[in-house]
Design a protein around this nucleic acid. Structure first.
Length: 203
DNA sequence: CCAAAGATCGTG
DNA sequence: ACGATCTTTGGG
């Protein structure tokens, strides 16, 4: 992966901030993401090219879903270009539509909406994303029935966010711990807490 | 075949 | 600090 490719995945990660993603009737405004640098990033699933990570080497703006710790699902946007293996993990967001459905899926009481999509596992759950959604084209045009009743997963249009973007090390990774490829909207209450991997090398 | 690790989360 | 829970991966 060239320096230009690294700059690319970082730019795409930052461009996802403030953008909406709709998942099975719930809309979330993305507030926190992490960039993963493909075959040359030891922290990336694409570091070893296997059947699971193959999708990361495919065309951009497809959905990569994986099971984490046997319990949660995490949603990523493959950012391309093909054969690079770059992707962006969606870490947190603010539910802006479909609150009732999101609360139902998450089992959180009203008044705790800030945590509906805080953390990658929670975000995917709020959006109702499952492994069936793997490889969804996130930019495909909707059907002719308009937005109401749409049951798939799609990204909304790019936005120009007014918020400052902060950055820092990625959460939970045990390798390349120093790489500051986590990006979030500064001061947003839906951003998840930083947690260093327990397996990260001591400083 | 088996064992281990893991881009997490909630509770204690 | 710890346990839940399961798929993928790599070694023998």
């Amino acid at each position: 992966m060239s320096a230009a490719d690294r700059a690319d995945v970082v730019r795409r990660a930052r461009e996802l901030l403030g953008r909406t993603i709709v998942g099975h009737g719930v809309t979330v405004r993305i507030t926190e993401v992490e960039a993963y640098g493909g075959s040359e990033d030891p922290a990336s699933h694409a570091f070893t090219r296997t059947p699971r990570s193959e999708i990361m080497y495919g065309p951009p703006y497809r959905l990569y879903v994986y099971r984490s710790y046997g319990i949660h699902l995490c949603a990523n946007v493959v950012t391309g270009p093909s054969e690079i293996g770059a992707a962006v993990l969606l870490r947190a967001g603010e539910v802006v539509d479909g609150h009732d459905l999101a609360r139902l899926r998450r089992g959180t009481p009203p008044g705790r909406d800030v945590q509906l999509a805080r953390g990658p596992g929670n975000l995917a759950q709020a959006l109702g994303i499952t492994l069936d959604d793997l490889d969804t084209d996130l930019l495909a045009a909707h059907g002719d029935d308009g937005d109401s009743g749409f049951t798939g997963v799609r990204l909304g249009p790019e936005v120009r966010t007014r918020r400052r973007i902060a950055s820092g090390p990625r959460v939970g990774v045990s390798k390349s711990v120093d790489v500051p490829w986590r990006f979030w909207l500064e001061g947003d209450p839906t951003v998840s807490a930083y947690r260093r991997s327990p397996r990260a090398p001591a400083t």
